[in-house]
Structure formats: C-alpha cells, structure tokens
Design a protein around this nucleic acid. Structure first.
Lengths: 185, 185
DNA sequence: GTCTATAACGTGATAGAC
DNA sequence: GTCTATCACGTTATAGAC
C-alpha cells in the first residue's frame, strides 16, 4: 500500500540533460550544438531529449538566461549605476557574455525572441523604470537598456577586438558617463 | 582573334539569384530561407545557386550589407552627429533594420561575423575615429559604434515594442545627446 | 568547355511503433 | 526509454545541352 520509494529517475535524467545543454549551448551556440551532442554528453539516447523537452528550441529557452549575470549591478545607488553596470559587463564572467551572444544569435526563433524580450523587460527595463525619476522615466529606462545591450553586443556578438582588449577604466569613464546621463540626466 | 560577343548569360542568372536572395534573406532571415526557396524565386535550379556562389553563407555575405543604410548620417557637422544618426536609424528605411537583424542573427558563422566586423570598422568606426578629436578618439569611436548599434539592436533584434512605437523626438533628445557626449564630450 | 539539370548523399530534428 | 522512419536541409556527383 505504501507507494514505492519513487526515486523518480527521470528528474535525474532531465537535470543531466539540462546541464549538458547549458554547457554546449553556451560554448558553441544554438546551431552548432546538435541534439546528438547533448545526448552524448548527458549519456542518454537522443530521442529522450526531445521526449522530455519537446524540442531543441524549448530546451534552449528553458536552459539559458541571457541577462542573469549583471542584473545585480542595477541595485545600489542610482547616481553610480552607469559606472557599476559597465564595470559588471566588462569584468564580469566572460560566461555571461557568451550566453548573451548565443541567445542573440538564436533570436530568429519566435520562442527565443520572446524569452529575450521578457527577460530584458523583467530584469532590466522594469526595475530601472521603477527607480528613475521624471515623467519620461520609462522611455529613459528603455534607452538605458538599449545602450547597455549595445556594449554587450560589441563584446559578445561582433567581437570588437579593440574594446575587448581596451583598459576597463577608459570604457567605464566614457560609456559609464554616457549611460549615467540617461539614468539621472 | 576578336573575343567572342560575350552574351554571358550567367551574369543575368547571377543577378536574378542575388536579388531573390536579398529579398528573402532580408524578409525571413538566414536560417529560414533555403537554397531551394531562393532558386524557386529566381526561376533556376537549386544546384546552380551553389555552383555560382559556392555556398549559402557566401551568397549571404555577398548579398547583404548590414550598415550601408545610415553611413551617410556620419557625414555633416560633428556637433550634431548624435541627433542625426539617431534620426536616421529611427526614421530610415525599416529595411535597413531588417537587414541589420538578419546579419546579427547569422553572425554565428565565421564568415558572416568577419563581414559584420569589417563593415562596422570601415563604415563606422574608421570614419568616426578620423574625425573625433583628442587622444582617446579611437576609443570613443568604438564606444560610439557600440552605443549606436545598441539602438539598432533594440529596434531590430529584440524588437522593443515601446521604443518602436515611441515618438522619434523623445528618443532623439535623450539617446542622441548621450551619443553626442561620446563624439564631442 | 562552360552552364544547367537530375538525382543522390550526409546530417539534422522530430514522430511513432515497440 | 529505445529504435527506426521520415522529412527537410545544404551540398555534391554526374551527366546532358549549348
């Protein structure tokens, strides 16, 4: 009568798939990593990946979060937010930028684009708009997000070698100040 | 001895393929448009597309230019360059943004990324660095490009609905001024 | 000999039978 | 859960047409 212990082996398998997918998607991007690669790394059969997650695209969306790396930089004093965010993007884990790049490149798919939009809205624009002052606060929050993603874009999508190897201080000074202007005028 | 009349039928075919490719790549993106779609629209056989252009990727690179739409906005007085560029991006052909988005999403491929980099360097960063003053002119030119692409990115890649339907004047006022700061301090 | 067309190969994601 | 089939894709081999 007592239900069997139910170790629920499938939760285990899903986790293994998730972490394999996360590593491969981050390193190689959406297109270049196949279901077979993920399955091999997780030690399971390719078909069960689809069976558990529905499609490669859904697995990607469920596994990857484009903006989690620097949302913490949005907290703290508002009059230094530009500098703080720029520094977080530049010096933060290179991993965060890689993830951002892989999401951007996969954003042709509707589900991925929707995920990118809502992630930016919830982790970026929303919190900013709530803190900014003035009646154009929402507009400035959107523009702040656009400018911030511009830097991530340069570092992770088109790989601006000059900026990648430039001194952090120079970037912080100029780009941070330019961002700050949108936050506090 | 006289060279043959050279009707060169193949130039004709190449042109038809090019314009079909341009339209489809722009409208649907790199992944979603197949060689077979392009061939059908051009009225030719799929195999000759590859024969003439080598690969789908090379056809893409040869057909699409991510930044040609607004490079003209970089000319003119330097003390209004921020406003001028923002206005060009916002009010310019929606086509230019679509092309930009399709290049960005295809930038996982090495050839496409290289093309995007050199296009930005030659049409954007180079001319800017030459006109900016100060010893950090080159750094500011790169940051200017990063910020400018941030706006294009918002409008064409993650499709920020708020910005897309916002009044041009508000965006020009804030983002243009923030850009201008990098151009002339 | 160059341009074009037909058919086929290899690989990818995914669906269905067992 | 596993295996196999299916379908679409980019690409290539090959052979015909001018």
């Amino acid at each position: 009568m007592t239900p069997p212990p139910r170790p629920d082996r499938s939760a285990d398998v899903k986790d293994k798939i998730r972490s394999a997918a996360k590593r491969l998607f981050t390193a190689d991007g959406f297109d270049a990593t196949g279901i077979r690669d993920i399955a091999a790394e997780a030690g399971v059969n390719p078909a069960i990946v689809i069976r558990h997650f529905g499609s490669k695209e859904r697995l990607f969306v469920e596994t990857i979060d484009a903006n989690s790396s620097w949302s913490s930089a949005l907290e703290g004093p508002l009059d230094e937010i530009g500098e703080r965010l720029v520094r977080a993007v530049i010096t933060g884990r290179r991993n965060g930028l890689q993830v951002f790049g892989s999401v951007v490149r996969a954003s042709g798919r509707a589900d991925v684009r929707a995920h990118l939009q809502s992630s930016l809205a919830q982790q970026f624009v929303g919190p900013l708009a709530a803190r900014f002052a003035g009646d154009d606060a929402e507009l400035r929050a959107h523009l702040f997000a656009a400018q911030a993603t511009g830097l991530m874009f340069a570092l992770s999508v088109y790989d601006d070698e000059y900026l990648i190897s430039a001194s952090a201080d120079g970037i912080v000074e100029h780009y941070g100040a330019s961002l700050q202007r949108l936050a506090t005028g």
